[in-house]
Amino acid sequence: MRDFLLQSWRHAGLAVLLLLVVSCIAPVTAIGVSGAIYKGSIPPGGTDSFKMTVVNGAGENPVDIQAGVMGFGQGADQGYFALDPAKDTSPYSARNFISLDNTSFHLGPGTKQDIIATITLPQNVGTGGRYAIIYIHAVPENGAPISTAVNVPVLVTIAGSTQTLTGSITTIDASGGTGGEPLVVTTGFQNTGNVHYYSTVNKVTITNIAGNLIANVSLAPSVFAIIPGSTINYTAKADVTNLPYGNYTIKSDVLLPGGQVLDEKTTQFVFQQPSSPVITSTNAPPSAGVSTQSPGSTVSPTGTPTKASLPVALSTISFAAATIIFGATVGRRK
């Protein structure tokens, strides 16, 4: 009987704790945004504008909305994020060229509000592309630590200017390949040009000391644009789970959609017991390809997904200090 009573009290205490935790979580209002990307070409001294519509669902709580222009950040996973203005030091920033007609407003359930962004390039803006993020977010209710937000990428191509497409492989790392784990090759890559490009492809070839092919992996084209100055990773998984100990060669290539090689690099690694593959030396320096694009031509190919506007843009959700929602649908380029 004593054990039964103790167990009952433990269960009751747990139930009370769960109730307290749930009751302390404030409701989070989900907002959506249509027109949640800008991709356009503007000449030096020119102006363009676009409309975003912020929507609060019919079943949501009333919410206060704020909007601001931030720097364009890109993580190693290729995803975009809003960069604090103090850290926005890129020469390719468009942040100071963008103004918003509405930066703070209230939305009741089932209502919406337009925001007009105006982009004005100076006459001496330079060449290539310019980039920013418009950060639209719900003000947290009652001091709650979480809210929802939408990052609106702005990708401006400077019309009539020279667009240089270059890139450099910065690192090659290998791991796994034993104990049932696939061999994973991670290629670090930086856009060293002056404009973004879409649909890059990473190809990885692994051979043994005799030159025999061990694995050949070609990743699907990237759905994200690679922004000038950004360093991102490609992760290729080879179907090799019991690699014999010995010396191997990894060759990694990064290509544009038409097959132009942006860069390629070959490196040696030694797979030794009991360690995972260890990069020991680099055989060949990067040989970055350079392509100069004529004014009026396009960088990204047709037939690939684009992160276009949609009636209500709700996609990736991450419950952190802010829930970031990208305006995209599955299968569309971002």
Rank of each mutant, 00 (worst) to 15 (best):
D3G: 10
F4T: 15
L5E: 12
S8V: 15
G13M: 12
L19G: 10
L20K: 10
V22I: 13
I25C: 10
I25R: 15
G32K: 03
A36L: 06
I37R: 11
K39L: 08
K39G: 05
K39W: 11
S41A: 12
I42M: 03
P43E: 14
P44D: 04
G45F: 00
S49E: 08
F50S: 05
F50T: 10
K51M: 13
V54C: 02
V54E: 07
V55T: 14
N56F: 08
G57A: 14
N61G: 02
P62Q: 09
P62E: 13
D64E: 11
D64W: 06
Q66D: 08
Q66M: 11
F72H: 08
F72G: 00
Q74A: 02
A76F: 07
A76I: 08
Q78L: 03
Y80H: 07
F81K: 07
F81A: 03
L83V: 01
P85D: 06
K87R: 11
A94Q: 01
A94V: 04
S99R: 15
F105P: 07
P109G: 07
I115Q: 04
A117H: 03
T118P: 01
T118S: 07
T120F: 03
N124W: 01
V125R: 00
G126D: 01
R130H: 01
R130A: 00
Y131R: 04
I134E: 11
H137V: 00
V139F: 07
G143W: 09
G143K: 01
P145E: 07
P145W: 07
T148H: 10
A149V: 00
V150C: 10
P153T: 12
V154C: 02
V156M: 04
V156A: 05
T162N: 02
S168Y: 08
T170V: 13
T171Y: 14
G176K: 03
L183E: 05
L183Q: 08
L183T: 06
T186D: 04
F189G: 04
T192M: 02
V195K: 02
T200H: 05
K203V: 08
I206K: 06
I206L: 09
I206M: 05
N208F: 05
N208K: 05
G211Y: 09
S218C: 09
L219S: 10
A220I: 10
S222D: 14
A225M: 09
T235P: 00
T235G: 00
T235F: 03
N242K: 14
N242Q: 15
L243F: 07
Y245G: 11
N247L: 12
T249L: 09
S252F: 02
D253H: 14
D253V: 15
L256R: 12
T266F: 10
T267P: 02
F269L: 13
F271A: 12
I279H: 10
S281A: 13
S281Q: 15
T282D: 11
N283C: 03
P285V: 00
S287H: 12
A288C: 07
V290F: 04
T292E: 13
Q293F: 09
S294E: 06
P295T: 09
V299A: 14
S300Y: 13
T304S: 13
T306H: 06
L310I: 14
S315P: 05
S318I: 04
A321K: 07
A321P: 01
G327H: 08
R333Q: 06
